[in-house]
Amino acid sequence: MKTKVLAIDDSRTIRNLLAATLEEAGFEYHCAVDGREGVDMYSDVAPDVVITDINMPNLDGFGVIEELRGAGINSKVPILVLTTESAPEMKARARDAGATGWITKPFDDQSLIFALKRVTGAVA
């Protein structure tokens, strides 16, 4: 079974890049255009891993993580955040909220797949 990815990003460019890389690597790709839509889609898609941007309208990435982690109920699903800078405080905040890991934009194919692999075990 393919590993299901739910990507949440308001930038169409980033969504396209993710889609191209992930589909080529054999992932099942779903996307949402902002945090609110991502959280809404979550239960329908039931992804194996969530990739979310931080800066988004209608609920930002931290909000997404907080809502998905929902008071520790859903602590298992890996959530990777997309950050532009590898600023330490960004990562720290994301992790405090319950993020599993991060992908630094701009990302290349290998680092994206490598990150997914470490949190889902997906063989791509």
């Binding site: 982690r69 520790g72 602590s75 298992k76 699903v77 890996p78 959530i79 992790r95 319950g98 993020a99 599993t100 890991g101 490598f114 692999k117 470490r118 949190v119 889902t120 075990g121």
Partner: peptide
């Protein structure tokens, strides 16, 4: 364990 990290997957990545 609150962050969704799973040791098993890390071992898998290591075995690569």
């Amino acid at each position: 364990f609150g962050t969704g990290n799973e040791p098993f997957f890390l071992f898998q990545a290591l075995s690569d």
